[in-house]
Write a protein that binds this DNA or RNA. Sequence first.
DNA 1: CTGTTAGCGCTTTCAG
DNA 2: CTGAAAGCGCTAACAG
Lengths: 332, 332
Amino acid sequence: MSATIRDIKAATGLSLATISKFLNGGNVLPENRVKLEAAIKELHYEVNELARGLVTNRTRTIGVVVYAVENTFTGTLLKYVGESLRRRGYGMLICDSGNDEEVEARNIKFLINKKVDGIIVIPVSGRANFLEPAKNAGIPVVLMDRNINGEFDCIKTNNRTASKRAVEVLIDAGHTAIACIGSESEYTGKERLLGYKDAMEAAGLAIRPEYIKRGTHSIEFGSTAMQELLELPEPPTAVFMTNYEINLGSVITLHRLGISCPEEISLIGFDDLILSHIIEPKISVMAQPMKEMGERAAETLLKHIEDSDGEAAPEEMILSAKYIEGESIRKI
Amino acid sequence: MSATIRDIKAATGLSLATISKFLNGGNVLPENRVKLEAAIKELHYEVNELARGLVTNRTRTIGVVVYAVENTFTGTLLKYVGESLRRRGYGMLICDSGNDEEVEARNIKFLINKKVDGIIVIPVSGRANFLEPAKNAGIPVVLMDRNINGEFDCIKTNNRTASKRAVEVLIDAGHTAIACIGSESEYTGKERLLGYKDAMEAAGLAIRPEYIKRGTHSIEFGSTAMQELLELPEPPTAVFMTNYEINLGSVITLHRLGISCPEEISLIGFDDLILSHIIEPKISVMAQPMKEMGERAAETLLKHIEDSDGEAAPEEMILSAKYIEGESIRKI
DNA sequence: CTGTTAGCGCTTTCAG
DNA sequence: CTGAAAGCGCTAACAG
């Protein structure tokens, strides 16, 4: 169907080696350059990257595995990762795990078989064995957002510290009955809960078990957890919501029940994605530096690939989340 | 680095042909099957899809090019497309065009060079020449959401009819001063504006030029357009917002200016993505069948690939958007 | 059922 | 600067 280098050879009379050299930016005689350019245009020739990759053992393609593509957080990260990779001349092969660990494991194998030069993962959960095949194949891996066990490079934010800071904002506003809604299976959920406890303890406040809600990373859970908190005999006066989906779910419940924020309940959330700007009132949040995370992940991975620095010790890069003030916290 | 079929040969004593046959699901003697499985596990053998693709001329991979990955609409579509493809044994190679037509054109070439079996595109705009290379290479293409010029298969919704219906809902509620905010460069923007006009004309209502706002497909534009409408000497009593981003932008403005909906202004929007459920009040919308669109796109493309039906006439599949009632329309 | 052989389209020595 | 030849890892005849 499509033209090959042999068709170019037939059209120009040049040898395969010369054509290949030209395709890869090498020097050829001006007259040959003209002939080649004409033949390539004429025949709609495009390099077959399969063949090229087979011999060079490099595909200039990075696999990116995300736990859910439809998620705004991962979508935003993908955007920045993709931009960085493109700038460096790499393509991106995105795989969606659909929050399913089996699919995630298959995605990794798929990418290995496709001979990607490296893999970036925003993992579904905290189990790392699914990355074994990449390790065996010698393919560098960089994790984002959620760390696993220190075996791989990881770009993340100071989840625990930032969470402590978030809760301190509530405490500084005079709140003492502070609840926390978080995801239970993920790395970030665990870290952020620890930050919550850090702040409470540092302030000498009691941690009431009924104020800690843990469940899935979902709008649904955020919604029901908030409702349960409100139905307690002594509901909290402030809530720390530890991820974007929980921010959304919580706010849905408040709207549904007609509870006003910050008058009746104060909120602080995590992640400053578009929603935060549209919800009334504007929620105060700890914002993760999305662009920087994406860029750092791409750069770190490419450094490994291009320096092929064998077995460098895994690095953990921790970026700082920033406090963005909204109007969701009442001083008492 | 990784094991090849030759390593398996050395480990088992079998021939390349037998091993290949086994890898592709062929029958081998039970004892050989045992040997092969052991060797494969032992050596962490994984097929090199580059080599396989080179000889079979099929990669079982579909390229998907979207105008913006971080966009919830495309993310949702990607999710369903990906699920369908996986179910059929195909992988998905996602490329983000970042709303840039040059990047989009490069993405198509990238996918061709990677020898994908087919391409699904949610295009940036209405210019089709960027798909020429795919045509030349004989790679089937299916468009989603935005049609281009009838040269390719396309899965979309009844934008014009659905828009007419949306405006009729406003008219039926007694509104006559109805504005429309839409994107100007895209196929969907144009179609939806036509639907608006259809409804206005059918009802014998004047179409006031100052009530038609056209600009980019963005939250920013939705936001400023709504503001401009409100500042008119005679502001509209109802607004038809023709895409998701414009829904968001418009609502942000209302919130910022403290204008209440539906008391002071009535709204109807397009697309029922998560935001609609969190915004107060719940916006009435025309909802596109996201899952069906994704599935149909995948199925249509695979049919072309697997039947390799040469030059079948391009098909346009039109799905119906559904009216979802919210609380954003006041009867007058 | 198994083995031998040729070749997919490209890059890469190594000579010239 | 150019060319001839070998080979990346796999599949696909064809024989046996």
